[in-house]
Design a protein around this nucleic acid. Sequence first.
DNA 1: ACACCGAGTCAAAGTTTCTTTACATGATCC
DNA 2: GGATCATGTAAAGAAACTTTGACTCGGTGT
Lengths: 77, 77
Amino acid sequence: MKPTLITNQIRSLRFTAGEMTQADLADRIGVTRQTVIAIEQGRYSPSLEIAFRIAHVFGVGLDDVFQYPSSLPEEPA
Amino acid sequence: MKPTLITNQIRSLRFTAGEMTQADLADRIGVTRQTVIAIEQGRYSPSLEIAFRIAHVFGVGLDDVFQYPSSLPEEPA
DNA sequence: ACACCGAGTCAAAGTTTCTTTACATGATCC
DNA sequence: GGATCATGTAAAGAAACTTTGACTCGGTGT
């Protein structure tokens, strides 16, 4: 798997959003617990669709959940 | 293939951003022309990583490029 | 001690996304 | 008419993402 460069605030958001467990979140966005764990730990970046569902659950924008390292070569050769 | 629910403004952005061709865009974000065509036509939603690169090329936020249908059941049973 | 819950790991199978190659169309230019 | 460019289609294969199931660990409660 490609190590992802994208970081996320899912863990923080889960706690600030009322002690939501990983299983809870997984359920709400319609994926498995494994997927939440992997994404939360940055093992890989989710599909855009799942990214949107996550942001939707927390009621924030995509950019509030995920961050792309600002200045990066378009495609590291 | 899963028909994607996410819409995007790539085509408009390409034109407002100075007559950029699909091949140009593909090159800048480091994917093939086919990928740009498929995403632009909504045949599938890109990975978060590619979504970020696209937004980055146009110098806008993710939400300016992609839109998720606002009120949708979290997971259509 | 035993059972439960939240979190994490691993591996295999399944689905979606991306690449590569090849060909088709309409527009434009020579 | 022939050449070129932008866009589009299709199919096979590779890579990435997601699921399933089994297992471990620390903390809490009975």
